[in-house]
Amino acid sequence: MSFLGYVFMQRALIAGALIGAGAGTVGVYVVLRGFSFIGAGIAHAAFGGVAIAFLVGMDPLLGALVFSLLVAWGIAYTSRRAAIKEEVAVGVLFATSMALGIFLLSFIRGPRVDLLGYLFGNILAVSSRDLVLSFVLAGVVFLAVLFLYKEFLFIVFDPGMAEVAGFPVGLLQGALLSLVALTVVLSLRVVGAVLVAALLVIPAATAYQLVRDFHKMVFLSACIGVLEVIGGLIISFYLDTPSGPTIVLLSASLFGLVLLFRKGTR
């Protein structure tokens, strides 16, 4: 039976397409603004949220959503007020939420929580409920990017000028980081908290090597994202490897190839 014959695989592939397109699109802003590290911070915070949700008996993805959104706005606020360096705030947060997650999960008795699955992704993990949530999350991300396309471009390219033009730069930055949070939660089941940051960076970085037009870069990055997540899932199915690392390795290989062929031109 081919991989398409399995229901779990069908769900994983549909979720995978949404993940690839979402991460590819949001990743463009992440790469161009240079906040890859913030993406990683939010991803780790999501894992802390999963653990808290398990303890209080909430849906783990909803826990991840709440927690990562809080962290996203926390970072946006810190970067505006500059009480401490944004980088330092993320650095502290990064390890703390990961530690909190594993610490809390060690208290949970009874059915073992799929710790590895949340950390590195599990191809079997996408339930039909998760799939519904994926559609909602991806829908919000795409609608937001569609509506605030020029605003996000403006604050990423030239935040000072966006402020002069009268745009609410702080709120827009928070909104953009919220999209990062939504994408992280969207990807959590299939890619895992540890590796989702790579998905926010690699497709966009690959597209950046190939085109010099922002609009084309967004489109290309989304396409590359879909291709890599779907491709990674299929390889993961046949090799019986964890889906997250397989997807990331495939993405990194493609990025390496593109770099090799584009060498010296950029």
């Binding site: 161009l32 390219f157 000028m161 010099r212 037009d213 922002f214 870069m217």
Partner: peptide, 18 residues
């Protein structure tokens, strides 16, 4: 960032955003 992937016309258009 001068390496930002934007064409000249897109940059000038930003003047109209406000």
């Amino acid at each position: 960032d001068p390496r930002f992937p934007l064409r000249v016309l897109d940059v000038v258009l930003m003047g109209r955003y406000g």
